[in-house]
Design a protein around this nucleic acid. Structure first.
Lengths: 189, 189, 189, 189
DNA sequence: AATGAATGAGTATTCATTCAT
DNA sequence: AATGAATGAATACTCATTCAT
């Protein structure tokens, strides 16, 4: 399957940024690595800064795709397992970009930009929740949006603490187990 | 007492860097903020990068000065109390610069540069240890340099975990108490 | 035929350098004189220093073009006449740049850079020699590369002595005649 | 005998200029090498450029001093011998500065500046000529100023051709002998 | 006479962005 | 959609010179 020019550019930019850092990396390096002309970059990205949300979106897209791959969960616990596992894996894989995306977006853009990027992810999660509620697997007492929000927040926080901070002591399995216990206590009656 | 040009420049640079970040901050902003000419900057700093170790040294100088202010400790525990308290306070005050100094120095300079900056700090601490040992307040079994090294490392790690990571849960008093218990166990027989 | 931007820049730079000298001349003067933007210079020359070999190459290109214009020589003597005449004319025309190129290239670049610049010139000369040898106009005893090398060296030395040193006494015709006599003695049996 | 600050500065500047070239050499290097403060330079030289005629004068002073050392010549030939010998020696010793002085003075100053520098030298030579004429050793037919001028010009030209050009073939003794023969033919009846 | 801190104009170079083809 | 030459503002750094002490 042929890669679109957009994908070529984004991938090239991510490689260059990982090697050189966002500030030192230049648009001319991106296009050289992607094998396209200088001006082509601006057919796909309004500016160099626009790469930051694009990379963030790419990571979240990947994360969502992998969750969908696992099929519909039958219980809340199964959904949690999927979310935890995928989030930890993605955080490990894209650790080089995550904190850069956080600081980059907060530097160049408003908070609404984050919301926009996260929207498809939340939409899918909420539909999963709704399905489980309708099937009776989750108590309807749970306020859906808040619950999803908290889950995502807790899981991301744990994964980042595990992979991005200098002070990792426990192994991934332990970290995931502790996280799950906390989530179960928080979300089930 | 009139502030020296060096102090004016360093303070101005720290303000600008906090506002704009090191990369975006320009030498011309530093000098404008300090109210001196462009060239004056280079009478005091060989390059813009040279600000990084200068800021690190300034922070450590301040830390050392505050410890000296407290006077000579009579027991190891009193010395620990001073170190912990001052380190936590300084880390809180200069939290905006600390991780920037870590990454900046490791990026632009060799490890020896850190040693050089820390030297006066270690020299003073070792002299305090020696004094306590000679006064009989610390067992002479303790290998002085290693002990000082470990103490500093542990305390800094704890303070940074407390103030720089996004995951602060316990309050400062608790964090300090736990830290001290660990240190006491580590350094007394 | 419209002049390319490269040609505009090179010509402008040569004019400015002749007037102000290489050190005093600034890139901003080059681009102003060429009527292009500051950044355009760096689309064609990696640095200001890179003008030095570019000017040298331009002079040698001109020299080679004029020799080719004269058509294929039928005897070694005719080839000599062409080389001598063209070299003297070029040396006179570009006297302002020749010693500057010598010192500039040896200052900023390795000897290989000279070789690279001279290569097309030597390639053509060697092909001319080979043709004359195959046509029987030159004895095949002559070691081709060394002969070409020596010829070029002698002729350039004489032309430079004539036009660049302050001590010109004889007229050009005499200088050329003496030079030719020496070359004939050196290269024919 | 203690060296004056002026002498220290001039000597330091000459050393630095020989090593780094006039353009790259900086006033701060001069004063560092001379061991004086930055501002002191400007107590002795109106500008950095003013070093050029100062160096030229220093060389000519040295040349004149060495001629005077030899005592009064009794014949024109003896005077020639002295001039030739001293000029060749000085040219060899100061070869690094001579062409730099020529181009520097013509670049920054008017021709009169040269005259001014040469004046003491010519004054002394003319007095020597006059003495020899009055003693009957030189024919009074010789127009004094023109003769001195030509002598100096010829000798300097020969010495510079010998030491500064790339094409030195004959040895110094031969060069001096030829020069003298020419001078004798030119100046004696 | 000597000092040396302060000056500020000047330079080479970079790079995100534009636009005619 | 793609190109890539042209743009020009911006930046770190240099250094001859001044001047109050």
């Amino acid at each position: 399957m042929k890669q679109t020019t957009y994908d070529q550019l984004l991938e090239a930019a991510m490689n260059v940024i990982r090697r050189e850092g966002f500030d030192k990396a230049s648009v001319s390096r991106f296009v050289k690595e992607a094998g396209v002309a200088q001006g082509t970059f601006y057919n796909y990205f309004a500016s160099k800064n626009e790469l930051v949300p694009a990379i963030a979106a790419r990571i979240l897209d990947e994360q969502l795709a992998r969750m969908k791959e696992r099929g519909d969960a039958e219980t809340l616990e199964m959904l949690m397992d999927t979310m935890i596992d995928v989030t930890f894996t993605i955080t490990e894989e894209f650790r080089d970009y995550i904190s850069f995306c956080y600081s980059g977006i907060s530097l160049y853009y408003s908070f609404e930009r984050w919301d926009e990027i996260y929207r498809p992810y939340y939409v899918w999660l909420e539909s999963q929740f709704l399905r489980l509620q309708q099937a009776g697997s989750i108590t309807t007492e749970l306020e859906l949006k808040a619950a999803v929000n908290n889950m995502v927040g807790l899981i991301e926080h744990a994964a980042e603490a595990h992979y991005l901070s200098r002070a990792v002591t426990e192994d991934r399995t332990t970290a995931e187990a502790e996280l799950k216990r906390m989530l179960v206590r928080a979300l089930t009656t």
